[in-house]
Amino acid sequence: MIGLTACVLLVALLAWPVGLLIWANGKIQHVDALSGAPGTPGNTYLLAGSDARGEGISEDGTEGARTDTIMVLHAPSSGPVSLISLPRDTYAEIPGNGASKLNSAYSWGGPPLLVQTVEQLTGLTVDHYVEVGFGGVEGIVDAVGGVELCLDYDVNDERSELVWTAGCHVADGHTALAFSRMRYSDPKGDIGRAERQRQVIGAISAKAANPSIVFRPGDQVALLDSGIGALTVDQSTGIIDLGKLALAFRKANGPDGVTGTPPISNPDYRPGGNVGSTVQLDPETVGQFWVDVRDGNLPPGPVGGLPQ
């Protein structure tokens, strides 16, 4: 009887993670996104933070679906993994629509047009598209019990609802979401917001990777449920791909990774027409920058940022 009980327990222990993965894989939401373009070396993820206005905080009063977070995560065949934030106002050619702000691609054509635009901008073929609903960030942070975030100045921003005292604090989901969205009170604008968004995702990843969660099945289910519920991915991406993404993200944010933005020549470029103020990438260096990202030739550390 003791031997039978031990066998049952062993089977249960082995079956639980398998069953959890199957359950999680079945909950993933899929969308047509990839372009089918010929592959480029390495593995490229396009991470987009979508915001259906009217749900949660409306930081700038904009209505309709938008993507205010656009990141390219690239794991080359060799060399450091790169996590590159593309400012949402980056001036880019939108296939079939002319030049405009990068996030217009999502507004006009959803994930497929955003993927095509980023591929044209970077020269990298997107292998996996992962969209995170902003409202889901709140649930994910609460599911891991809050995350420690740091900002070295006070903030009282009505648009994002972020109230912050300079320093590091443990933030709940609502505060982490506001921390991710705030830009009008940030002296670096969109560039500063991208830095804070990477900080939030990195803090969530570190908390979720804590080995102690292995012994808390209930927390595993809550975390997967809140996390996967916030995700929409391309048709071919599954739970194993998301696991590889998490590992690549941790490498990019580690001491041997590359994080930042492409080289920027003008953060207030005004091309005319109705486009308004945009972010102009440096036309002389950005081409080689993306080649170096692709081939893993960038040295570890921060890259890009505002021009000096």
Rank of each mutant, 00 (worst) to 15 (best):
H74E: 00
S160G: 14
H128M: 14
G123H: 12
P300L: 00
I70G: 09
A24K: 07
D154N: 15
R198N: 03
T278D: 04
N297D: 05
L113D: 02
N103M: 12
G260H: 09
C7M: 12
D60F: 07
S35L: 04
A206F: 02
I22Y: 05
Q220C: 09
G135L: 05
P217H: 01
I204D: 03
D241Y: 07
T237N: 10
A75F: 03
V126M: 01
E195C: 02
G189Y: 14
A12K: 05
C7D: 01
G260Y: 08
G146Q: 09
L83W: 05
G54S: 11
R196W: 09
I28C: 04
S58V: 05
L34G: 11
G272C: 10
T40M: 04
D190S: 12
S107W: 11
G3A: 08
G276H: 07
A203H: 06
P262E: 12
W16A: 13
A65R: 15
T122M: 04
P211R: 13
I2T: 09
C150I: 07
D292H: 13
L14A: 15
K207E: 15
D268F: 06
R250F: 01
R181V: 14
V31Y: 00
I201T: 06
T69A: 15
I28M: 10
P187S: 13
R88F: 13
T278M: 06
D32Q: 08
G79P: 12
Q308S: 10
I191Y: 12
R270H: 06
P187N: 13
Y91Q: 10
G110K: 12
N210W: 15
V115W: 03
V118G: 00
G56S: 10
D295N: 15
R183T: 13
V115S: 00
H128G: 12
F249M: 15
A92C: 12
S78E: 15
P211C: 10
G229T: 06
L34P: 09
A194W: 06
A194V: 05
G26W: 06
R198C: 02
A105E: 12
G173Y: 07
R88D: 12
R66H: 14
P112Y: 03
W23Y: 02
G227S: 05
E93S: 13
T232P: 00
R250D: 03
Q197D: 11
Q116N: 04
P255E: 03
L13H: 00
G273T: 09
K101H: 08
T40E: 04
G227K: 03
P262W: 11
L113K: 06
V132R: 01
G243M: 09
V258P: 02
Y184L: 10
T62P: 07
L177Y: 11
S236F: 02
M182A: 08
V126G: 00
G304H: 08
Q235G: 01
P111G: 02
A230L: 05
D51H: 10
T44V: 10
I239E: 10
G243Q: 09
V11K: 01
L306P: 13
K188Y: 09
Q288S: 15
T40V: 06
D127V: 14
G301N: 05
G135N: 07
V130K: 07
P255G: 04
T175R: 04
W164D: 14
G79W: 03
G202Y: 11
L10S: 05
S104Y: 05
V214P: 02
G19L: 00
A246H: 08
